[in-house]
Amino acid sequence: MAVGEVSEQDWIVGSTGVWAGDPQGEWRSHGPYPFAVEGIQRAESSLLVGTGHGLWEAPLDPVGRWTQLHDEALTEVLDVARDAEGAPVAAGSYGVSVSTTDEFGLRRWRSLTEDLSPDQRYTNVIRLAGPDLWLAATEAGVLISTNSGLHWESTELSGSPVRSLEKLDDQWWAGTDDRGLWCSHDGHAWKQVDCPAAAVFSVALSGNNLLVGGYDGVHWRNAQGVWKQSGPRALIRCLVMAGKIWVAGADPGGLWVSGDEGASWHRQGPFQRVTVICPPGGAA
């Protein structure tokens, strides 16, 4: 393993560039690429990095050159996933995009949602739930596709921008910009969840604890169903719970870590904004 290479034990943070390290320890910059990172997909041999300047594949060795994966049709990437074959699927301001390769083996991208309205096209989060079932959190609500993005339809969660979308414990959770938190078993039918935050940017679940990242910090629902507000009152873009360690990314505000289940939080690392947090070993 090369010096500084990203290992399975590393946490990864998306900020101005990609960083690897430990929430309560040191962070190291992953290469001289100060892109505004919006999405990271972690794999064994490399990272897929969605940025304001396109989609990149970053080798695990920080000295290695990043390879451009986008073309002129793929620009700001807000989230990235991999399909059943491992091919990247990008979400962003121009929709959900997939690529084919041309005769030179170079990627050519096309938006699968190009013909939808601006708000339906603008995709904040893409989640691939199976070989065919894709969900997109858009500025017009959650859209669903049952044929790998070829056709899309609206769900019951429509009419509000959806800024977070996660599948946690077999249930979908969606955070809206103005109507709080919603959940769904199938992605079609949604019901609103009691939540003190009107704008929800991130969701995390661990056991009976539910964390929600709002415009005004972290909101925590404990096993008794009681909500408490916790941590800095910042816009929380991303949340990870790993046992007693809770990690929150604020934009702006940087990385905040709690080692005591939210009783106290400490700002860590050199970050001014954090948009993605990947815990060790897993995907974003």
């Binding site: 594949e57 390879t67 451009q68 073309d71 002129e72 030179f104 170079l106």
Partner: peptide
């Protein structure tokens, strides 16, 4: 062999030409 973006120069040549003509 490689341009600044990790691809061969021909990849950028084709991408740039497509966008400018488009």
């Amino acid at each position: 062999a490689q341009f600044w973006n990790g691809q061969p120069p021909v990849a950028m040549q084709r991408e740039a030409t497509r966008w400018i003509l488009g």
